[in-house]
């Protein structure tokens, strides 16, 4: 990720009022994680799997603070169970920012499943999402996701792909 894209993500998170980020690091966002760690206005929590991160974000929601779950899109699959229970069972929202592994342009065989499953899994959970491949659209996509999730009290997602992450 270019520094300017990292800056756009952090600007978007701050504009949306996010003060806590749970993450499990991945390679496409590798420049983003240390930038989040270094930001004095954001507390980062490293998790052991993305489902745990989703549940922590749900707890943060209940506190009145705003959280984000940041991960590779494969983490969505690890998060499905807590997302379904919290979102559909209780109306506790989690906003996710994920790297789009496995989209056209992918050159790793192991990442192909992530691309094939991401959008069907989001659709199965009825989670609205936006795929952003242009840097100037990152900030708006993040703030729109929070607007929606705090009106619907349901999850939303932003997937960053294309030139933004490669």
């Amino acid at each position: 990720m270019k520094q300017s894209a990292v800056d756009a993500v952090i600007r978007g998170l701050k504009k949306a009022g996010v003060s806590i980020v749970c993450y499990l690091p991945d390679s496409l966002f590798k420049e983003l994680y240390p930038a989040l760690d270094a930001d004095p206005d954001i507390r980062t929590i490293r998790v052991t799997n993305e489902g745990e991160g989703a549940a922590i974000c749900g707890g943060v929601f209940l506190s009145g603070k705003r959280a984000a779950l940041i991960m590779e899109n494969s983490g969505l699959r690890a998060s499905v169970e807590p997302l379904a229970r919290m979102g559909l069972g209780a109306g506790i929202p989690v906003v996710m920012l994920m790297s789009y592994r496995g989209e056209l342009g992918e050159n790793n065989w192991w990442a192909i499943p992530h691309g094939i499953t991401m959008e069907p899994v989001l659709n199965a959970l009825r989670i609205p999402y936006r795929v952003v491949t242009e840097e100037e659209k990152i900030e708006r996509a993040i703030t729109d996701a929070y607007q929606w999730s705090y009106a619907a009290y349901y999850h939303s997602a932003v997937a960053l792909g294309g030139e933004v992450v490669r």
Partner: peptide
């Protein structure tokens, strides 16, 4: 008290609440 619904989610959610408050 919030009655959580899922195995594996109780303590993570409590920790998120603790981080926020």
């Amino acid at each position: 008290s919030l009655f959580q619904q899922q195995l594996g989610c109780v303590t993570p959610q409590a920790f998120g609440l603790a981080a926020g408050l």
